[in-house]
């Protein structure tokens, strides 16, 4: 199963992965800030631990992104749980979320929905 990886190492040719989660070129998406602010992997990518072949779980359309950008407290989780699959919040997500938003200094909806946050 890992033969393509070994072949790539031997020959020096990159593996050509087909990109599943792809945003249009006019969207400037920074992945690291999402991970740093407590957005879990499965929040956007779905239960990848249960995917023999990765598929796109969420629409990735702007309205979907805005849903979280307008209400980050609905989706944010503690940084220690970002990689957890099948995460369940220990308490009510809204309450926990609001605390984390303050603790992680996540910007307010007006800042997160400014056009230049993603488009430039």
């Amino acid at each position: 199963m890992l033969e393509p990886v070994r072949e790539s190492y031997r020959s020096g040719e990159s593996i050509r992965w087909t990109r599943v989660h792809d945003l249009p070129d006019y969207v400037y998406f920074n992945h690291s800030i999402h991970v740093n602010k407590g957005v879990g992997c499965e929040t956007c990518h779905g239960r990848v631990d249960k995917m023999p072949l990765i598929y796109q779980q969420n629409s990735l359309q702007m309205e979907w992104c805005l849903d979280c950008h307008r209400h980050p407290e609905k989706h944010v989780r503690p940084r220690s749980e970002v990689f957890t699959m099948g995460y369940q919040p220990a308490e009510d997500q809204e309450a926990l979320g609001r605390r984390l938003v303050t603790e992680y200094k996540i910007q307010d909806a007006r800042a997160l929905t400014s056009c230049s946050t993603c488009h430039r």
Binding site: G12, I15, W17, T18, N30
Partner: peptide, 20 residues
């Protein structure tokens, strides 16, 4: 639909280089 793009990671990544 977006045209299909590929991700082609470095096999030996130059030191300190982070794409982006």
């Amino acid at each position: 639909r977006q045209p299909t793009e590929e991700i082609t990671p470095y096999v030996r990544q130059p030191e300190e280089l982070v794409p982006g």
